[in-house]
Amino acid sequence: MNRLLGVKTKIVNFVKKDKNRSKSRFKRFLFGMKFTDGLFFKVAIYLMLVGLGYIYLYPMLYMISFSFMTMNDIIDVSVKWVPSSFTLENYKIVWDAIDYPNALKDAIILAGLPALSATFSSALIGYGFAKYDFPFKKILMALMILTFIIPPQITMMPTFRMYANYNLLGSIRTFIYPAILGQGFNGAIYILIFYSFFRMIPNSLMESAQLDGAGPLKIFTKIAIPLAVPAIIIVFLFSFVWYYNETYLSGLFLRGSDMLTLPLRVEQFMVNYASLYPEGSTARELMQSAKLAGNILTILPLLILFFFTQKHFVEAIDKTGITGE
């Protein structure tokens, strides 16, 4: 009898344990070992990503679906998202009108050269501000931030007159010269990005290199630059995008030159198109979707560029062997 009771309690204990175990397994499945790898967390992340991504994708999808629509679809109110018949007519109109391959080549040169020079100069300047102490440093930095904070609308007129005096207007030099001297569009923000990135690199790394006999330039090129690859990439991307997209200043500075940025070309095409067809004609209705097609053709190269460069965000830290301070 006693023996039997003993077996019974054993079985009860075993079942209890098993219940606990399955409970904990379920819990682990939901929340993971360290919470961030559980199902619950994953689902939450994807839900938030989809939700936030939808906000950004919504106008893109709107633009894409509109750009494929024929004239009938645009006028028809019942057609909202999916066009009844896909047409490439809008793209063809814009492609031919702005001579897309050539325009794209121009735009890449117009954005790429200033962006490269801005990246180069701001890396140097940011490093100087971050790693060296010198008199008037705070004042100089304040002046730098001031140039960024002042709305460009104020300094517009004097800047334009100044560039005219320097004979820089109407060519790519209006962008390259200021950029290489650290004064391009949003130049201060690039310098600040580099500044904070170089501040994040521990000083002891530089000191050990100095003890090994490396000069300041060698430390900069061999240690600081390889550690700042993400910063270099984002600065290059930002400046490329800004030079590529800017219409307000570049429309003014590039007036009368053969090279124009893509948005300016699309704008010019729209103006020409509008003057050809009177208000209210059916061809005028088509203009909206042609414009959206032009916008997509403008944005697409940037998206492709970003898709291929974003990998390098991750690689920089793996290549170095420093440990945190």
Binding site: S121, L124, I125, Y127, G128, F129, K131, Y132, D133, F134, P135, K137, L140, L143, M144, L146, T147, I150, I154, T155, M157, P158, T159, M162, Y177, P178, I180, L181, G182, Q183, I191, P216, F220
Partner: peptide, 27 residues
Amino acid sequence: QAITGFGFIFLWIIGYLIFSLYPVFNS
């Protein structure tokens, strides 16, 4: 340190004198 620091931001100082000083203070 001060001299090397100025060496690094040399480009910016020149650029500031040439391109940024006038529009800001003119306005």
